[in-house]
Design a protein around this nucleic acid. Structure first.
Length: 253
DNA sequence: AACCAGGTGAGGC
DNA sequence: GCCTCACATGGT
């Protein structure tokens, strides 16, 4: 499959996706019930184990990349981040798995989130990630190195896929409000779910890295989310992901 | 071997 | 509402 303005590496390795392993250029990926592998060679993408449609949707290849980047580039302060991670896309992940991923992210790190997700799929999923309703044993959730997050995950198991379809139809502000009713979902996690799985690209998740890089590049703000959404509007989430990835990997250069 | 990690919830004002 | 604090566990 031919692609333009796409970096598989930056997209997969920028902290929006957790179940993958890189071996010999191939990324062995898992998302919900799918296990597949994918490789990029310049403008060519190869994949096995899933459909072209799924790949295009999951990796944000259906987004209007040129348009969004053209607008963001007008912000000169943002340019180093945009330059660093050319081709980085916002993914469109499975909302249920995204919820569990970011419940796990609380007071954690990407390595450990990856471990949690791997253990959860092994404990409950039989080679795939468990469906809502299948994470039905609190003690087993604790065995997945989830710590104090175990009870949140166990509670979230009462949701179903229809719940996420309903949230997806809501406008952004209401979706955030609803998601925050779930245990272990505060503003930041709700914004991650909105951005990485519901296509709500104005969401601007603020973690310690974003707080730091925003202060260093744009100065102190009493409400960073509001500042970002005023500055970048519906593209705020894209700005966030470039800033996050850049601040963690490319900032020193 | 302390110290930290893509924050959240509960309690107090 | 805003402030403080505890929080399980693996990685460094």
């Amino acid at each position: 499959m031919k692609v333009k303005n796409f970096s598989l590496k930056h997209t997969i390795e920028s902290g929006q996706f957790f179940r993958f392993e890189e071996k010999g250029g191939w990324y062995y990926c898992s998302e919900r019930d799918k296990n597949f592998r994918i490789l990029q060679d310049g403008s060519n993408i190869e994949f096995e184990g899933t459909s072209r449609r799924h790949v295009k949707k999951l990796f944000g290849l259906e987004s209007n990349y040129e348009q969004i980047l053209k607008i963001l580039k007008k912000d000169e302060t943002l340019r180093p981040a945009l330059e660093y991670a050319k081709g980085l896309r916002i993914m469109r992940r499975d909302p249920w798995e995204t919820l569990i991923s970011f419940q796990c992210s609380v007071m954690s790190n990407i390595k450990k989130i990856q471990l949690n997700m791997k253990l959860l799929s092994e404990q409950f999923g039989k080679g795939k990630f468990p469906n809502p309703g299948e994470i039905n044993n609190l003690e087993k959730v604790k065995k997945c190195a989830t710590g104090f997050r175990a009870k949140w995950i166990y509670e979230a198991n009462k949701l179903d896929d229809d719940y996420f379809k309903k949230i997806k139809r809501m406008k952004y502000e209401n979706a955030v409000k609803e998601l925050m009713k779930i245990q272990g979902v505060g503003r930041k996690v709700a914004d991650c779910i909105c951005l990485f799985s519901l296509g709500k690209t104005q969401a601007f998740p603020v973690d310690v890295w974003i707080a730091r890089v925003m202060e260093q590049t744009y100065g102190p703000n009493k409400n960073v989310v509001e500042f970002a959404q005023k500055r970048w509007g519906k593209n705020a989430g894209w700005a966030q992901q470039y800033l996050y990835h850049w601040s963690r990997n490319g900032y020193a250069n």
